[in-house]
């Protein structure tokens, strides 16, 4: 599997001098195509901060992040939206759907950002809703959907720009067991069938069943890295 996201000696520091706090403290990590990487760790360990920096949402204090071969830490602020638009899909714990838009329109808006509009956008949005099994909810507003359905719409929206990397922040935290499993199956499919890299920040142990690799963070550092497929092979 080729490396799609390369992180080297990454720091995120808040404050200066003696009061400085390293939210991310010298992380070096590779994310590969077709893998589902899980970031775990206690609250305040720097998982979400690391995820935000991976997705070019938060700027690193020092270190390097290469997205598909492009160094992003030195890019001007104004260039970062384009990097996010072209390389990443985001899934949030709170779904972050647009309440005034239907499921279909929520997906279409991501296409609109990529200037895909009209019937082409509608066709593509319907395909994505089919992929997450929610074609019948295309014209429903988010308020009429369950948590699991909302998260699947959010996944469809994240995939609208055809990103190679999907970053998910606690995607199952607000979901019941069955809905959480369904969401994880979809994310797993993205790695297996579409060769996308999926990075999931979670506290949810259910996610571990689908992980290829688990990175445990503590105090902003990588405390442990477990390659699940290798472990499975060892076990077998």
């Amino acid at each position: 599997m080729s490396v799609i996201l390369q992180i080297r000696d990454l720091y995120k520091t808040y404050g200066e001098g003696a009061s400085a706090v390293h939210a991310v403290n010298g992380v070096t990590l590779d994310v590969k195509r077709g893998e589902l990487l899980v970031l775990m760790g206690p609250s305040g360990s720097g998982k979400t901060t690391l995820l935000s920096m991976m997705g070019c949402i938060l700027r690193a204090s020092t270190g390097s992040i290469c997205v598909e071969g492009m160094e992003t830490t030195g890019l001007a602020e104004s260039h970062l939206p384009k990097v996010r638009l072209e390389h990443f899909g985001f899934i949030f714990q709170g779904f972050n759907l647009f309440p005034a838009l239907t499921s279909l329109e929520n997906v279409e808006i991501a296409l609109d950002l990529k200037k895909i509009r009209g019937s082409r956008a509608r066709q593509r949005a319907l395909e994505l809703l089919t992929q997450v099994g929610l074609t019948d909810k295309a014209h429903e507003f988010p308020e009429n959907l369950s948590g699991g359905q909302k998260q699947r719409i959010a996944i469809a929206r994240a995939l609208a720009g055809d990103p190679h990397i999907v970053l998910a922040d606690e995607p199952t935290a607000a979901l019941d067991s069955a809905s959480g499993r369904k969401v994880l199956e979809i994310l797993h499919e993205l790695t297996r069938e579409q060769n996308r890299a999926v990075v999931v920040v979670t506290h949810d142990p259910r996610v571990l069943d689908y992980a290829d690799r688990i990175v445990k963070l503590e105090d902003g550092r990588v405390a442990e890295e477990i390659v699940c497929s290798a472990m499975k092979e060892v076990v077998s």
Partner: peptide, 8 residues
Amino acid sequence: TLKAMGAN
């Protein structure tokens, strides 16, 4: 959310 998704 729009900004995170890449809206300028």
